[in-house]
Structure formats: C-alpha cells, structure tokens
C-alpha cells in the first residue's frame, strides 16, 4: 500500500512532500511523544500525531518513516513543510481525531496484507 492509496481512501489533504506519495507503507505508529516514536516506530510506517513543529520531520527522516498524518485539522508549521518538501516525506492532514483515524488506517493496512 502506497501513501497515495491512504490519501485517496481517506480523503486526506496533502500539506507538503508530494514527491513521496509513492512511498510504501508497511504499518503505522500513533504517538505525540517524540522519544516514544524515536524509540519504537519502524521504517516505512505512517505516523499519526498532533505535533506540527519541525522536529517531527527530523524524526520522520531519521527513522525513514513513510509519511506523517496530522490529526484534527492541524497544519504543519512553515519550516516543517519546507523540510518535508526537501526530503520528499509527505505530511498529510485529516479533520478526524486520532482514535478514529488510527482505526481506519489499521483496517486499510490489515486488508492489504
């Protein structure tokens, strides 16, 4: 499953990093604690969070995450979006809350396995 598939199926907004929409997604991780994500997320996972500052891109890049989804309509800060464009790691946005969105993505990924 590609990032683009999740964008299409859940109607997500693409905030930045569109060059990475063909990245493969193998799973997901939901957390707002950066060290938790650093320590426990795995490469090619999609990360759901409400954090919007630039450090989320540092983590996504260091951990080779597939994409970031901001919940509840949050938008990336300007320098966050700039780094996302530079690295080609998409930042997506959804109006939904973390619980619902995590459930839907879990379902989608499970169905493709």
């Amino acid at each position: 499953m590609k990032v683009q598939d999740i964008v299409d199926q859940l109607g997500l907004k693409i905030c930045s990093g569109a060059a990475g929409l063909n990245r493969e997604i193998v799973g997901g991780y939901t957390s707002d604690l950066l060290s938790d994500v650093m320590g426990n997320a795995n490469e090619n996972q999609i990360w759901l969070t409400l954090q919007t500052h630039k450090n989320i891109m540092a983590i996504a890049s260091l951990k080779d995450l597939a994409a970031i989804i901001l919940v509840k309509g949050y938008q990336p800060e300007e320098d966050t979006a700039a780094q996302s464009n530079e690295e080609g790691i998409p930042i997506l946005s959804s109006e939904e809350e973390t619980f619902e969105l995590t459930g839907k993505i879990y379902d989608l990924i499970k169905r493709t396995k």
Binding site: L33, D36, H53
Partner: peptide, 10 residues
C-alpha cells in the same frame, strides 16, 4: 513539544 517524557536516556 512532545519531548521531556523521560525516555531519552533509556
């Protein structure tokens, strides 16, 4: 910012 959870050194 999501730092300072006491997970860094561990």
């Amino acid at each position: 910012m999501g730092f300072g959870a006491g997970m860094g050194l561990p």
